[in-house]
Nucleic acid binder design. Structure first.
Lengths: 236, 236
DNA sequence: CGATCGATTGAGCCCTCTCAAGAGAGGTGG
DNA sequence: CCACCTCTCTTGAGAGGGCTCAATCGATCG
């Protein structure tokens, strides 16, 4: 039978506290779906028919404003949930989820959520924890946008990406999926031009190494220094 | 017995779907606390001993950065929950909650949360919905800070405050609690000087009427126009 | 009635955006 | 396999929105 291997998901936060039988019961209802690079898992405004767990790959969640501007909400790492609109009382997805690499997701029908939660109440408390964590992270972002200069915000963003999706390479830590200057601009509330200028500068100082949709942190510690620098701190 | 009157809270989102008996069971464990204007319900970093429902008054949730800058996370209206740190897996409060008016809160010990959730699973799903809504609102804020000018952000903030805590008065809609230019600055990621200048301008145009910690929207619709104006829209 | 806290307003600057070109890298189709 | 085309990145020049610094005014409260 084409059920999903329990060992793949047993340790995910969403399934914390479940035994093998329960897990099996939940996974019974899931389908595994391949999503090709640069295609959407779901789109903003679309009816929230399913919710997902990312098994493999990377997904970008982004929002478009009525006036057409785009902002990146977050990058989803393997093991994280996405599209839990139904659980938080939304009938439609509030953002678009796009695979930035060939990815694999587990999908459940949103309609199954109420029943699953009734049978497995820990699903609700686990999801509550996850959503709470995201709320904290989003507040951090608001604080940064309110109090820091662009340079600090970008440094923080890169460090966070490296922590979340870093892959060790010879010259440092690479961000393990394709990401453009534009993406970083949309994460930090600035323009791709400013990002490009800043990254060029950092590259010349040897802090990073970068190319087309590729960034490697050579000196993470130096970036931390930059990130924590006060706006008018001209020491160095 | 000094139990809390069920009718006061029966219609709150947190208690959606509970019958009188269940509500009674939950309220058994709550204490009602008066919080004087300008005193803290709880403080950022403090152990999250309790969670709360605001019954009466208004509370400001704010965060302080390591470097001392302050930002306003949100204003809590009567009926809303606050301090649900434990439910989202935090041992300490991530923000400070300050009564901006004499207020009354219901308080439960955080330690009781797991037990309450086990007995009344709907508490978890209701809270999930609430936290999800806050996440959406915070994302909206990020989008605004990323894409809009200060003027639009402040207009949006005022309109939101009026919707959430507006009181009809002769000359328009008053924000029903004391709020300073500084508070608005900390909500919108700007400075009190810029807020002051903008509000002065609006007052001269007759859009608002304002005083010490007091703002009345005279022409909400005009503010909507302002709020939705494109950055370079010089028509009018 | 004094003291404290909030609001106002001016002057000047600077960080970041906008506008504008152009170069490089990769992918694709003939 | 090469030529082309598209997408990303780079870099310059100039402008401006909002911040910083500074001083004063006004109101509320004890």
């Amino acid at each position: 039978m084409a059920t999903i291997d329990i060992s793949l998901v047993a340790k995910l936060p969403l399934f914390a506290g479940f035994d093998a039988d329960e897990l099996d019961g939940i996974l019974q209802e899931a389908r595994s779906i391949r999503v090709a690079k640069n295609t959407a898992v779901f789109e903003q405004g679309e009816e929230a028919h399913s919710f997902f767990v990312l098994l493999h790959g990377h997904v970008r969640a982004s929002k478009v404003t009525p006036t057409g501007e785009q902002i990146v909400v977050r990058y989803v790492a393997p093991g994280e949930t996405l599209g839990v609109a139904m659980a938080i009382g939304l009938a439609r997805y509030p953002a678009t989820a796009t695979a930035v690499d060939d990815s694999i997701v587990l999908a459940w029908l949103s309609a199954a959520w109420p029943r699953l939660v009734e049978r497995y109440p820990a699903l609700a408390t686990n999801t509550l924890r996850t959503v709470g964590t995201r709320l904290q992270e989003t507040h951090t972002r608001v604080v940064e946008m309110s109090t820091q200069q662009v340079e600090q915000r970008i440094a923080h963003a890169l460090l966070r990406l490296a922590k979340q999706a870093g892959r060790k390479v010879e010259s440092g830590v690479a961000i393990d999926f394709p990401i453009s200057r534009q993406d970083i601009a949309q994460m930090t509330g600035t323009t791709l031009h400013t990002v490009s200028r800043l990254l060029s500068g950092w590259e010349q100082k040897g802090l990073i190494e970068s190319g087309r949709q590729k960034i490697i942190l050579r000196e993470p510690h130096q970036l931390v220094v930059l990130a924590e620098q006060a706006p008018d701190d001209t020491s160095s």
